[in-house]
Design a protein around this nucleic acid. Structure first.
Length: 425
RNA sequence: GGAGAGGUGGCCGAGUGGCCGAAGGCAAGCGCCUGCUAAGCGUUUGUCCUGGGAGACUGGGACCGUGGGUUCGAAUCCCACCCUCUCCGCCA
C-alpha cells in the first residue's frame, strides 16, 4: 500500500509511475474522494471539539454540586446526533478510499529498467555453461516417468490436472532438495527456519497484497473463511504483523519450506505438460525484514543466496532484472533467476527475488524503532524463492539425464539420497 | 465440543460513568553523583489521523481485544463477536 498523504501531495508523480508500470488504477476517483473526506473530517473534528468542551463543563459543574442546564443538554443531544450521522458518512468515504488504495501497485525503484513486458527485461549475468549433449535431451516428464519418479496421470485421477505426484526415488529426490536448500540457508546464510501455517485468514492475505486484488488466484476454504497460501512469503511476512521491531534485531532473515497452492486461473493452456506449472508445488522461501537504508544491499545478498543453490547443483542459469512493465504488484524491484532446461532449450524462472520496500509493511503495519526516542518507521520487506523445489527437480532431471535414460545425482544432493549416485530404471 | 477465568501503554499491573491517554512498577533515554562494576538521586519516554509553521514546535481529533448500543459524557454500563489461559472430553 502506498502512503495516502504521499499520493495526495504527489499526484502527478504517482500517475506517471502507474503509466510506466502499464497499469491505470483509478487514481482520479481516489483523489476526489480524499478531498471530500478531509473536508468532512475537519467538520466532524470541530464538532467533536465543541462537544468535548461542553461535556467537560458539565462534569466540572456536577463535581461542584450544580445541576446541568436541561436546555444545554438538549442542544448537546442534537449535536451528538449530528456527529453520529457525519461520522457514518465519513466512514463510508474512508471505506471507499481504502478499497481503492488497496488496488494500487507499488512504485518501482529508480534503478528499475523501463519496459513494457518480459521481452524488455535485461539480463544481469549468466552463470554456467549449458551442457553439450551427444543425444537429443528429453523433457523432464519423459525422463521422470520412465524412471518411475513422477506419475502425473494418477495425480490427475486423484485431484485433477496439474497436481504433482512423486513416487519412489522421485519423492526422495524432492525431499532431498528441500533438505539441501534449508540446510544451506539456515546453516550458511544465517536464516532462521520457520514452519508456518498453510491456511491463513483474509487479513494475512491482505497484508502481503494477495487480497483483495488477486482473490481469483487463491484456493479458499468456506467455513471458517481461510485461504491456502500461494507462497510461504505470506505467513512469513505476516509473522511480524502489527509489531514494532527493535532496530538491533534487523535484518531479520527467515527461511521456510512449504507447499504452495495456486489456482493459476489465468494460465489456461500454458505449460500443460510436466511439472513446470502446478496447482500445488513445494518451495523454500526466503524473507527479510530490513531498515530502508540497507534493503537494496540485502536484496543483492538474497539473490546471491538463491543463486548459491543453483551453483552447488551445477545448474546453469541467468539473472534478469524485471522491467517496470513486468514487475509484480507489491514489488519495487525484482530479480528473477532462470535455470537452463535442455529438454525445452530455454531458460525458465526458478526464483523471483523482490524488495517490496514499505508496500507490505504499511499494509501489515510492521515497523521498527531506530533510536529509543525516534518515531517508529515502516520496515522494508524482501522475499525470494530459494528455490522452487519442483522446478529444481525438473532442472536436475533435464540437465543430468544420460543417453540410457538414467539420471546422475548432483554431488551436493548425494548425502541426502543415502549416497546414491545415479537413478536407473 | 463442555465449564470457568481473562484481554489496559515496550513489558507487568491499577483503574466500575466526568478531575483518565490512563496510578504504580519494570525497561529505556538524559542529567547529577560515584576509583571500576553496581547502587542512588532528579527528570523524560505511547500510537495513529488532521491543521498551522521553513523548523524547534504547536492547535484539534481518535485509540484501553473488535464491532455496535445507552449517555451531554464510556477503559468503566449493555449486546454481539474474536482471541488467550485453566480444567474436562475427543483426537493426529
Amino acid at each position: 500500500m502506498l502512503d495516502k498523504k504521499f499520493i495526495r501531495e504527489n499526484p502527478d508523480q504517482v500517475r506517471e509511475t502507474f503509466q510506466k508500470r502499464g497499469l491505470a488504477p483509478d487514481l482520479e476517483a481516489f483523489l476526489s474522494l480524499e478531498a471530500k473526506r478531509l473536508v468532512l473530517l475537519q467538520e466532524v473534528e470541530n464538532l467533536r471539539a465543541r462537544q468535548n468542551q461542553a461535556s467537560e463543563e458539565i462534569g466540572r459543574g456536577k463535581r461542584e454540586g450544580r445541576k446541568p442546564d436541561p436546555e444545554l443538554t438538549a442542544g448537546l443531544r442534537a449535536a451528538s446526533e449530528q456527529i453520529k450521522a457525519d461520522q457514518n458518512s465519513l466512514a463510508e468515504l474512508e471505506k471507499e478510499s481504502d478499497r481503492l488504495i488497496l488496488t494500487f501497485p507499488n512504485l518501482p525503484h529508480a534503478s528499475v529498467p523501463p519496459g513494457l513486458d518480459a521481452r524488455d527485461n535485461p539480463e544481469v549475468r549468466r552463470i554456467g555453461e549449458p551442457r553439450k549433449f551427444s543425444f537429443p535431451p528429453r523433457p523432464h516428464w519423459e525422463v521422470g516417468e520412465k524412471l518411475g519418479l513422477i506419475d502425473l496421470e494418477r495425480a490427475a485421477r486423484i485431484s485433477g490436472s496439474s497436481f504433482p505426484l512423486f513416487t519412489g526415488l522421485g519423492a526422495r529426490l524432492e525431499r532431498a532438495l528441500i533438505q539441501f536448500m534449508l540446510d544451506l540457508h539456515t546453516g550458511e546464510h544465517g536464516y532462521r527456519e520457520i514452519a508456518p501455517p498453510l491456511l491463513v485468514n483474509a487479513e494475512t492475505m491482505t497484508g502481503t497484497g494477495q487480497l483483495p486484488k488477486f482473490a481469483a488466484e487463491l484456493y479458499r476454504v468456506e467455513d471458517p473463511e481461510l485461504y491456502l497460501i500461494p507462497t510461504a512469503e505470506v505467513p512469513l511476512v505476516n509473522l511480524h504483523r502489527e509489531e514494532i521491531l527493535k532496530m538491533e534485531d534487523l535484518p531479520i532473515s527467515l527461511a521456510a519450506y512449504t507447499p504452495c497452492f495456486r489456482r493459476e486461473a489465468g494460465a489456461h493452456g500454458r505449460d500443460t505438460r510436466g511439472l513446470i506449472r502446478q496447482h500445488q508445488f513445494d518451495k523454500v522461501e526466503l524473507v527479510k525484514f530490513t531498515t530502508p537504508e540497507s534493503s537494496y544491499a540485502e536484496l543483492e545478498k538474497l539473490v546471491g543466496h538463491a543463486e548459491e543453490v543453483l551453483k552447488r547443483l551445477s545448474l546453469p542459469y541467468r539473472v534478469i532484472c524485471l522491467c517496470t512493465g513486468d514487475m509484480g504488484f507489491a514489488s519495487a524491484k525484482t530479480y528473477d533467476l532462470e535455470v537452463w532446461l535442455p529438454g525445452e532449450g530455454e531458460y525458465r524462472e526458478i526464483s523471483s527475488c523482490s524488495n517490496c520496500e514499505t508496500f507490505q509493511a504499511r499494509r501489515a503495519n510492521i515497523r521498527f524503532r531506530s533510536a529509543e526516542q525516534a518515531k517508529p518507521a515502516f520496515v522494508h520487506t524482501l522475499n525470494g524463492s530459494g528455490l522452487a523445489v519442483g522446478r529444481t527437480l525438473v532442472a536436475v532431471l533435464e540437465n543430468f539425464q544420460e543417453e540410457d535414460g538414467s539420471v546422475t545425482i548432483p554431488e551436493a544432493l548425494r548425502k541426502y539420497m543415502g549416497g546414491l549416485e545415479k537413478i536407473t530404471a
